[in-house]
Design a protein around this nucleic acid. Structure first.
Lengths: 345, 345
DNA sequence: ATGAAAGCGCTAACAA
DNA sequence: TTGTTAGCGCTTTCAT
């Protein structure tokens, strides 16, 4: 019976010495047995494992970590900028988190989630110094490029999801943002659109790259194509909705909209429809990310697909190589234009 | 190579004794100073704090945890059922996770994320016995009601997001699922719909409650209302899309659809439109959750709103009271019908 | 107000 | 093959 072992929160949990006593061996033998050491006689090991099972004993990871100076934990940190009050609610972000959790747990590691409330202080330095985890994944550079650069000087097991910047010292994994943006805009041009606006907020590196890709594609556009036009909008559904509505109500006219993310693309579609435009007939819409619902909106959303799952796996793969001491290079991942109803071929 | 990395990544981490030496005091004084103890002379404390800051020293939480037997960590566990291979991709889930992270970090605690791959073994018992965290939040009962019941016998700091079941021994927080479902169906009936189908998979307690609420509402419906009709579908976009399409192609006819979650409601709308039905003219659609995009689909989705943020805060509030030793009661939260375009008044 | 010392639960030399 | 021993970095009595 495992009833005794599952003691209440404040009661005594079984410790390794308890198992040792029950097995009639020294605690170090139990330690070896539970670690699967071949030094321990097979029969004895089985007996010890059985005992541990019966008593609901599991090795205390805190004590283990202190001893080994290895926590078997990976920290995932999210530097939040303006919307610091906001929780991690963005679908892309959260999908990334799920895939990271997947990849990390597959390696027998735990995931420690931390929100970095902007430049409160040394959010990254403290996380590193604390030794709470064996490696750190930072999702999104936000405005923390310099902080990351500094950390990279002394701390190896760090990987960052985001854009690859000139002179970057830290290891990043991210999508080909300029390429994706160019593909999106070219697609719109090929389908005859000539007045294409960009919706979003190109403050952070990733979105800036998307905006630049948009500009680049317009440079090579046919004569008569309207110049680049940024419709600024924070990356929240409401902000995007209002930005597009205001824009239309101000009398601006365009026949295509390239949104920095799917989330705001979806809001944009709604604003367009509510203002009497049909999508894609009057205005074609292209997003970026290919979040789960993108294929399931009405109309379904043409978008630049980022392979989050592969991205997450790559991040974790690189992180573990760095934990082993390897100096890994940054990676840029290809994207794929998913042509759907909101901007058909 | 490996050596160098070790050194750079953790070798030179300052310890408390280092700070003590620099300050010319004993380590115990540093400990007290950094803990803000009034015992330490104010000037000395300032000096020690300054030293720690300069040297980027932060207290090692692992050692601290071992000593105090308190980790300042909360575990969030997600028992996954069939889709065990799937990552945590569901928007509701993930929104919940974000709000939990928010609430937990506000209390100076960390969040430990763990996927429980179904009944691999004693997922919950092991998590409890490991002592890795001071409390556990389980998101969704899935099919683990019995496991939770067992754990509740001996472990206090446990809270569960989900339905409140008869004879339940653990503390749960969850929405009024039956009430929400009834409100949704009544709304459809009031707007003249008479053939209302339920889309989803009422296997787990929460969704079963929603289905039962649907049935209940139909019992009190006007004469001539079609009986309850379940269109079974897993809770993924693709599965739901196909279920609805197949249903339509099989010649079934209905004028309203109540979906167990927003995610599948959105897919259902798309399937309906692609099969030539207009929403809401031919078929009204109501979802459940009010996820972020629900208000921004085309048409926007009428849905039963769960207040995830409040739910998360309540979970964490109760959890901390339980960590303090209090026996808290389960909570059922009110829901709100959000009437939008997919099923207008 | 500060120092000395014990020990949280575990692992890994080193011994035997 | 197993036991002995010495800490990992910290907090907290207990002395002073």
């Amino acid at each position: 019976m495992k009833q005794r072992a599952r003691e209440s929160s404040r009661g005594k949990a079984a410790k390794m010495t308890d198992i040792a006593r029950l097995a009639g061996v020294h605690v170090s033998t139990v330690s070896r047995a539970l670690a699967g050491s071949p030094l321990v006689e097979a029969g004895k090991r089985k007996r010890i494992e059985q005992l541990a099972l019966e008593h609901g004993y599991v090795v205390n990871p805190v004590a283990r970590s202190l001893r080994l100076k290895r926590t078997q934990m990976v920290s995932v940190m999210i530097p939040l900028q303006h919307e610091a009050g906001q929780p991690l609610t963005d679908p892309f972000f959260v999908a990334m988190l799920g895939h990271l959790a997947e990849a990390v747990t597959q390696r027998g590691y735990g995931l420690h989630l931390q929100k970095a409330v902007r430049p409160t202080h040394e959010w990254l330095g403290d996380a590193i110094a604390s030794g709470r985890s064996d490696g750190i994944v930072v999702i999104g550079q936000s405005t923390e490029h310099e902080t990351l650069q500094r950390a990279a000087d002394t701390y190896l097991p760090l990987v960052v999801w985001g854009a690859q910047l000139p002179g970057q010292k830290y290891c990043s994994v991210g999508s080909d943002n300029p390429g994706g943006a160019r593909a999106a805009v070219r697609h719109l041009l090929q389908s005859g659109r000539r007045r294409i606006v960009f919706l979003g907020d190109p403050t952070g590196p990733e979105l800036r790259q998307r905006y630049e890709g948009y500009e680049r594609a317009l440079e090579g556009a046919p004569r008569g194509t309207a110049p680049a036009r940024l419709v600024p909008a924070h990356l929240t559904p409401d902000a995007a909705y209002q930005a597009v509505r205001d824009c239309l109500q101000a009398g601006e006219s365009f026949d295509a909209l390239f949104a920095a993310t799917d989330v705001i693309a979806i809001s944009a579609m709604r604003a367009l429809v509510n203002e009497g435009r049909s999508v894609p007939q009057d205005v074609a819409v292209v997003g970026f990310d290919d979040i789960a619902i993108a294929a399931h909106t009405t109309p379904s959303l043409t978008t630049v697909r980022q392979d989050v799952e592969f991205g997450a796996r790559t991040l974790i793969d690189l992180l573990f190589r760095r934990i082993e001491g390897e100096e890994t290079e940054s990676v840029t991942l290809p994207v794929e234009l998913m042509i759907r109803e909101s901007a058909p071929g």
